[in-house]
């Protein structure tokens, strides 16, 4: 993925959600489905704070199936000791990309009575992962005597969270901390994303990091309504809800909308270097989206 982005090609990433059990069969199946259609795939880290197979462990299965993993690393469940230990293991197991994020609060997951950690935050994590690579130092400043993990470091940005005008400042802070690629929250309010990207370009941030626009195909108008009303940090315009409501086949229309969004982002919004397709619990739809959006075949790195 790093090569594709560095060569200035429009990248495609997807997402694989690890299983809530100890069998990797489905993960391998999803990776095989995505192989050749995406440049890399995110492996979520107990997303929505629901216990799942670890992102690093799942990443090993995905890599074995021939797909490049992007290991998501949240700050919710590990302190700085565990984070570094996991980073060392991940690199030794062939992981090459890490996405640093805070992580959803455990209140939303299946262990709401758990303690949370947040020993370091996502900004600090970016900085420290880069420092491990660039200066061969543990977080404490001690030298890594031996192979250091040399991750391609990613971060996330949410143009739909508030305060809107601060979002670009925060993105800049993440890039200053060392983020090399950025994946955004799923975009439905295209107008707001365009305003966001305008500010990003004004500051030249698109030249300093690779920005991948997040999209999520919706399965039904109810799903759209749910995101619109119940998920913090999401904006879903009524027009999308209405369009899905009026469609004969909600799923097919959801895919159509997603493909239109990708084409619009790729052709109309300068500074976007790729698309991140988050087909939540719907991995099998990704090849069709990639193909119909004109992003297939994928370039060889």
């Amino acid at each position: 993925m790093e090569q594709i982005l560095e060569n200035g090609r429009f990248a495609v990433t997807a997402e694989i959600g690890p299983p809530k059990h100890a069998d990797a069969e489905k993960v391998v199946h999803h990776a095989q489905l995505l192989k050749g259609y995406v440049d890399a795939t995110n492996i979520t880290d107990c997303q929505t704070a629901v216990v799942r197979m670890s992102s690093i462990g799942t990443g090993v299965h995905v890599l074995g199936a021939g797909v490049e993993p992007i290991v998501q690393m949240t700050c919710r469940d590990r302190n700085r000791i565990a984070i570094q230990s996991d980073l060392l293991a991940a690199w030794s197991l062939g992981m090459r990309n890490v996405l640093c994020l805070s992580g959803d609060h455990q209140k939303f997951g299946n262990h709401p009575t758990a303690r949370n950690v947040y020993d370091v935050d996502s900004m600090q994590l970016i900085h420290l992962v880069r420092r491990m690579r660039d200066e061969k130092l543990f977080f404490c400043g001690e030298e890594i005597k031996g192979a250091e993990p040399r991750f391609f470091v990613g971060a996330v940005a949410n143009p739909f969270a508030d305060p809107f005008e601060w979002r670009v400042d925060r993105l800049e802070k993440k890039i200053d901390a060392g983020a090399e690629f950025i994946q955004t929250q799923c975009i439905y309010d295209m107008e707001r994303f365009e305003r966001f990207m305008e500010m990003v370009r004004e500051r030249g941030l698109d030249k300093r990091a690779h920005i991948l626009a997040g999209v999520t195909p919706l399965k039904s108008w109810k799903a759209a309504k749910y995101l619109q009303t119940s998920v913090s940090g999401m904006i879903v315009p009524d027009s999308i809800v209405e369009r899905l409501k009026g469609a004969e086949d909600g799923k097919a229309e959801g895919v159509n909308i997603c493909i239109e969004q990708i084409k619009h982002i790729k052709e109309k919004i300068p500074g976007v270097h790729g698309v991140h397709i988050m087909a939540i619990a719907w991995e099998e739809v990704v090849p069709d989206i990639v193909q119909r959006a004109g992003l297939y075949p994928r370039p060889q790195a």
Partner: peptide, 12 residues
């Protein structure tokens, strides 16, 4: 049993 930490600062 493990404690219900949602009653502490962990719960917000």
């Amino acid at each position: 049993e493990p404690k219900d930490w949602s009653k502490a600062r962990d719960g917000g």
